[in-house]
């Protein structure tokens, strides 16, 4: 199957996904389950990675701006920009594409190969709407919150790294964080997050839903879904940056 066919099939899938849920109560139950699976269970890894990467960004910036002519507050300013603009929305989304994407593909793919999706269809249930829509809504709702947490903890990690290493003072770092604050950058980061969240929910669902074969096929589909989600995040990141910041 060529790329054009995949794109067409993906859009046909979305058409089925965005239908009115057949039973509101079942949809809300599924939504809460997905918020837990895709969102709450990802908080730990995002906080952990944000904290340490924030620290590394601050240390690297400090080591590369080691000059008497550059104010120390520039370290906090540069770290803030890096974290808000790229690290939190893009890097964290790629991490989530790996963690959540493989979970989505393998869970839906297993349902496909064990005929659970056929069972839903035979009952008269729109299986795409039933399985994928709660995932899309859960990620769109939860990931902006998750990425915002990542931003805050990344900046905190940078501050702590400076204080513990003695490379820069905590006061000048915080001064840098407060310098030239532009709220649009937060909006830009959250817009990117929403687009990435949509990709993280739908691309792996596509790979899982249309898997053919057995357990090996599900494994291959999981790998493919992570690769394609990452590629699409990187391309979309470039296009959104071009559109929103230039």
């Amino acid at each position: 199957m060529n790329y054009i066919e995949h794109i067409g099939k993906y859009y046909m899938m979305l058409k089925q996904v965005f239908r009115r849920p057949q039973k509101a109560r079942i949809f809300y139950d599924a939504l809460l389950r997905e918020v837990e699976e895709l969102g709450l269970k990802s908080i730990g890894i995002i906080l952990f990675i944000s904290f340490f990467i924030g620290g590394v960004i601050a240390l690297q910036t400090a080591l590369n701006l080691d000059s008497a002519f550059i104010p120390e507050s520039l370290i906090g300013f540069a770290a803030k920009r890096s974290i808000i603009l790229e690290f939190a929305p893009t890097f964290c989304s790629i991490i989530l594409a790996g963690k959540v994407g493989s979970y989505i593909t393998s869970s839906i793919g297993t349902m496909r190969v064990t005929e659970q999706i056929d069972a839903l269809e035979v009952m008269g249930i729109n299986s795409l709407n039933h399985l994928v829509l709660p995932k899309v809504i859960a990620t769109l709702f939860f990931y902006p919150f998750l990425i915002t947490l990542g931003m805050v903890l990344g900046m905190f990690g940078g501050w702590l790294a400076g204080v513990l290493s003695g490379l820069f003072s905590g006061v000048s770092y915080i001064e840098g964080l407060q310098t030239d604050f532009n709220p649009f950058l937060i909006a830009y980061a959250l817009i990117k997050t929403l687009v990435f969240a949509f990709l993280i929910a739908t691309v792996p669902s596509y790979h899982g839903y249309y898997v053919k074969g057995g357990s090996i096929a599900v494994g291959k589909a999981s790998t493919q879904s992570v690769v394609w989600t990452t590629i699409l995040i990187v391309i979309t990141n470039y296009l959104l940056t071009q559109m929103l910041l230039t």
Binding site: T114, Q116, G124
Partner: peptide
């Protein structure tokens, strides 16, 4: 569709649901 019952080769039970939830699922849905 609601007039049809199907028993699949591998049973096709929803593995995230208990026996009670599996059997109750069509009732909840329809």
């Amino acid at each position: 569709r609601q007039e049809i019952g199907m028993v699949f080769q591998g049973s096709a039970l929803f593995d995230s649901q208990t026996v009670e939830e599996n059997v109750m699922f069509p009732l909840k849905m329809f």
